[in-house]
Design a protein around this nucleic acid. Sequence first.
DNA 1: CATGAATGAGATTTCATTCAT
DNA 2: AATGAATGAAATCTCATTCAT
Lengths: 203, 203, 203, 203
Amino acid sequence: MPRVSEEHLERRRRQILEAARTCFIRKGIHATSMQDIFTEAGLSAGAVYRYFKSKNEIIEANIATVIGDLRTFFTALADGDPLLPVDEVVERLASHVVALSGENGPLRLAPQAWALAMHDPEIAAYVADNVTDLRDTWTLYIRRLVGAGLLPAETDVVAAGKTLFALFPGFLIQRLLLKDFGPEDMRRGLKALTRESMLTLTA
Amino acid sequence: MPRVSEEHLERRRRQILEAARTCFIRKGIHATSMQDIFTEAGLSAGAVYRYFKSKNEIIEANIATVIGDLRTFFTALADGDPLLPVDEVVERLASHVVALSGENGPLRLAPQAWALAMHDPEIAAYVADNVTDLRDTWTLYIRRLVGAGLLPAETDVVAAGKTLFALFPGFLIQRLLLKDFGPEDMRRGLKALTRESMLTLTA
Amino acid sequence: MPRVSEEHLERRRRQILEAARTCFIRKGIHATSMQDIFTEAGLSAGAVYRYFKSKNEIIEANIATVIGDLRTFFTALADGDPLLPVDEVVERLASHVVALSGENGPLRLAPQAWALAMHDPEIAAYVADNVTDLRDTWTLYIRRLVGAGLLPAETDVVAAGKTLFALFPGFLIQRLLLKDFGPEDMRRGLKALTRESMLTLTA
Amino acid sequence: MPRVSEEHLERRRRQILEAARTCFIRKGIHATSMQDIFTEAGLSAGAVYRYFKSKNEIIEANIATVIGDLRTFFTALADGDPLLPVDEVVERLASHVVALSGENGPLRLAPQAWALAMHDPEIAAYVADNVTDLRDTWTLYIRRLVGAGLLPAETDVVAAGKTLFALFPGFLIQRLLLKDFGPEDMRRGLKALTRESMLTLTA
DNA sequence: CATGAATGAGATTTCATTCAT
DNA sequence: AATGAATGAAATCTCATTCAT
């Protein structure tokens, strides 16, 4: 019997992960039994356990795919040319979030990932890593705005980065739960709020 | 010990709910067994099941307390006098979020609530209800700003409300996971971003 | 506080037994919880346990009422004047069985009593006692027929008694389960079968 | 040990059913715990639940075997050649009942089946089906007697069939409970009762 | 006499995982 | 490499019974 190719192994892994994701999205991670995954993947218990040594490993591997190419996409957006205005960047990123959270989109697992991160250190590390990376990208982008003279030099770019990042979990939740909030809405909302007059109240 | 006062019954319910919350926060909802709750509450299985007829009922009852008095607090803030500037309101609300998500704070359950809402209609309805209420309060507040002439009449107050609300899930996640984001940071970040210059890039 | 009268005690016992019987007939003995009985009787747990010291005692006391006044009735029938023909006696007894197995009739518990008798010695003894008594009454009746010259002197009256008794469990089961067998049917069936010609086949 | 033959699966099912029957007969259906069945079958919980998805399914499957080959046996008896006299048929059927109700005989479950049939529709249907079939076979047999001129043409064959069937539950109960009634006794009893003189009393 | 909150053993069932074939 | 039967710990929930009030 010939050694099975690396490629074959990788294909099997992906097959299992996708079956698992489908189940996780459909029923929730905890409500998904290994049997559900076997069935969805069309594989036997033994086969699946050859590629992953526990359910937790499948969960972790899946969560590692949650934000998909969001990081790459966003880096290109924030770092590329030309330098875009905030509302534009926000809308484009939101659009990507929407794309990744449709039907079988991996971002649908994000809330479950956050919940698990509260108690599973492995997952916590992974989520923290992603959050950090996305925030840093925002920070970078804002630094560019400062560099371009569009924001004052004393701007707290880190705080601003965290704040801009903060918008997206809330955007996703509203999308998944209420389905009445879109990228253009958020852009419009953001533009409306970008009025210095709003800060002038306190003496 | 029969013929017990209403008050006693209510106390027992609360005792159980609090024990459950402690467990849920400590180990996660799914990893908490009924036995964990019995032990934490110092009650027997039968006693607990006299007050709640299933684990799910305990979960739901607990989730109903997640945002605690956040709604009331925020309504007073947004609706009260004097009319405060956005950054002020955001910081104060964030501070309350911090208060409610400390040690044994109910808001610590929020991520788990979001995750459950994806598959449990009962919980979904509850979460949606809260989200809607908080967004509406933001909308109301922004309308006041418009009324005060601080924002133009044509402002999309609903979109702005959704956008401001969106900040908070992301704020909470960063707090719970990375612990490096505080109310004042978000206020500063917000102020930094409230610069019309940021929108002027596109020709 | 005045001593409660014997009569009161007896009334309470009967109240509980009847409530229990209603439940037992409605849901089956095993599916009936003590709580069901409390509710049906409109009494508290403590109250019921003052009169019966276990569920089993309630079951046994109830089973002791299963055949109701069937023994008395039958004795009068078999022993009284005039001496009636078999088919007549069978029909009358069957009619009484029907009466006792209607709506809330105690005989509805008979199949459950038989089943329990297989493993509960107490109940076994009680059921055996009743069976024996009824069979004996049949034997007595048949002896009268012999005495009257209607059956030969060498008739095995005991075997005949057991055989006649045997008809009734089957009668009851058919009534309760298929509802298509009445006292007159059995009388007609019996008459049809009382033909010596049926025995002449074997050479 | 995967990839097991159909035959193996069938053997396992039977093994479980038989273990269950042993328990049911020994302790009664309700007093038998799943653990009892696991132990008796020498299997683990999971193994048993692979073959039956609930205790109720095991009960029902067992009850479906209660009368064993009684139907087949009786049909051959009633329908075969030569045409036998009633007392002969009754005795032979009773003998078969005895055979099926010894030691571990399935008919020992009959009283429990009757009791369950009072509240479980599935079981009720099964029992009704068997009762109906046996009665029909009796009817068929009596029709043959009529055809042979041994009974008058106007004989109510259906009523006679129900009546003859009625003998057997009572026979079984006396056997299981008092152990003093055998097939030959019932034959003798029946013969004694097959005297037209018994009907002549009423004027 | 009566109440009904509390007990806690025990019942059924599920499910991640293993390993002989 | 793949199968899937088997394991058995653990989870949720019920219920007869007690006893402080």
